[in-house]
Design a protein around this nucleic acid. Structure first.
Length: 457
RNA sequence: GUGGUUUUAGCUCAGUUGGUUAGAGCGCCUGAUUGUGGUUCAGGAGGUCGUGGGUUCGAGCCCCAUAUUCCACCCCA
């Protein structure tokens, strides 16, 4: 067989042992918080029927879905005309019926509809799995990455939203992040603003434009709004909203006045206030993390109420989490009137942030505690029951599998960061005591196995 | 999808106007030490210069294509 140069597919990475230790530390920390808030884990398949995924993420999102070619001679069933048209978009559904999941929320909605008779509402689930996006990779952006989602369906209470704020606070705090902001907004406020101008149909255009405020400034936003179908008179009305400033209470009271003519806008503000009140009642220290940011839009089309986004202020990085309420996601699968709300942690970005800030604890690297040397076949035979006894005593142990030079075995222990080595040779086997070497200090002493177990446990 | 950028030893990187045999540090292997790693010393291996074309007497260096890395858009975790 012809040799091929080994390489990774664009936007993917291998995770070596040291990286997996750190990744698992992140996953374990986040999952632990999820469980303590009463969420249970599920998993769904890596790929779904293409139909399940398309049309949920907006036009841009749909383009980023990785499609899977049908099996067999998939072109034989396609008509000559379709092939000659050379129209990829028209051809795709004919040759692809499956796709890699793009996020965890839509598969979850599908899951809820399919298992509606088995689950008790409100249903609180979490899910930690990889998702795939055919995006162009760059810093903090991969084509395969893990999301840690928590969602609850079947409860319209804003207590859920408030708990998500606390989950963010707790999980990110446990991971060592000190300075981060949980941005909060509500789609109803955005709808209210659009209604105020009298152009509810331009809601999406409006949010996309004002979302860029911190990037392109007020003038840039105005320019973009004009390009997207708004008039100078509209900009006049938008001005006080876009340039909203002050602390969260000031923003709320200012918005109340501006949005007074629109019922939906007032409703959005009321929801924000309620969430904040819950947060305050549960943890008075969490309120300062929350910021009302009415320029926060979030692309995913299915959000209808509160929306979240989390940014770290310690390093330059895109959002490390986001989420929101969706009132009718299950409706697309035939189950109407079921509301849901959830958030997501971007594990890979959090990893990059922790790495940059050097926040991984030493204990995130727990490997083999003791290596037993291998002198020759006799010593190996002698060591077999010993290594098992150590393992049964809960001590991570390994017996070097070959009678290589001791120098090589010691180097192995050193390279792998194994803190202790047990030497078993002629002397030890006749004397009945084992030699325990502490790799950090270089000290050696002769001990009985029971004493070694005591010491290493 | 658009524009730019990167690619040379296992890793991080030098490499002059296009000119003999492509370098360094770290790592790796061997020995000093046949029962001892991490330090020290001596020696050694390892490269189709991302890939495919082209220009040239001659290409790591110039041109074209392509892949890849990172960055800015777009969008997002």
């Amino acid at each position: 067989m012809a040799q091929i140069k080994p390489s990774l597919a664009k936007g993917t990475r291998d995770f070596s042992p040291a990286e997996m230790e750190k990744r698992n530390y992140i996953f374990d920390t986040i999952k632990d918080v999820f469980r303590r808030y009463g969420y249970q884990e599920i998993q769904t398949p890596s790929f779904e029927n293409l139909q399940t995924l398309t049309g949920k993420y907006g036009e841009e999102g749909d383009k980023l879905i990785f499609k899977i070619l049908n099996s067999g001679d998939f072109l034989s069933k396609v008509s000559e005309d379709k092939l000659m048209e050379r129209n990829s978009n028209a051809l795709t559904p004919l040759i692809s019926e499956k796709a890699l999941r793009y996020d965890l929320t839509v598969p979850f909605a599908r899951y809820v509809v399919m298992h509606q008779n088995d689950i008790a509402l409100p249903f609180k689930r979490f899910q930690v799995q990889p998702v795939w996006r055919a995006d162009r990779p760059q810093k903090g952006r991969y084509r395969e990455f893990y999301q840690c989602d928590v969602d609850v369906v079947g409860s319209e209470s804003l207590l859920n939203e408030a708990e998500f704020v606390l989950i963010y606070k707790e999980a990110l705090g446990k991971l060592g992040l000190k300075d981060f902001t949980i941005k909060l907004n509500n789609r109803k406020i955005l709808a209210g603003i659009a209604a105020l101008i009298g152009k509810p149909e331009l809601l999406i255009e409006m949010t996309v434009a004002i979302d860029k405020l911190d990037k392109i400034g007020l003038e840039g936003v105005n320019k973009e709004l004009l390009e997207r179908g708004f008039t100078p008179a509209d900009l006049e009305k938008l001005y006080p909203v876009i340039t909203l400033s002050g602390n969260i209470t000031e923003k709320v009271s200012s918005l109340k006045k501006t949005l007074a003519p629109t019922e939906i806008g007032l409703q959005g503000i009321a929801e924000i206030e309620e969430v904040l009140a819950y947060v305050q009642a549960m943890d008075s220290g969490a309120g300062h993390l929350v910021e009302l940011d009415i320029t926060l839009a979030r692309g995913l089309n299915y959000y209808t109420g509160c929306i979240f986004e989390v940014k770290t202020n310690e390093v330059q990085m895109g959002s490390i989490g986001g989420g929101g309420r969706y009132d009718d996601l299950t409706g697309m699968f035939g189950l109407k009137g079921l509301t849901g709300v959830g958030i997501s942690f971007g594990a890979d970005r959090i990893y990059d942030v922790l790495e940059e800030l050097q926040l991984f604890p030493k204990s995130a690297q727990q490997g083999t505690k003791v290596l037993i040397s291998n002198f020759d076949t006799t010593a190996q035979q002698y060591a077999l029951p010993i290594v098992q006894q150590l393992r049964q005593a809960g001590i991570s142990s390994e017996l070097y599998p070959n009678a290589s030079k001791l120098k090589k075995q010691m180097s192995y222990a050193d390279a792998k960061g194994i803190p202790y080595v047990i030497l078993i040779g002629e002397q030890e086997m006749t004397g009945g005591l084992l030699t325990l070497k502490d790799m950090a200090t270089g000290d050696q002493q002769s001990l009985e196995l029971s004493a070694i177990v005591e010491r290493l446990r």
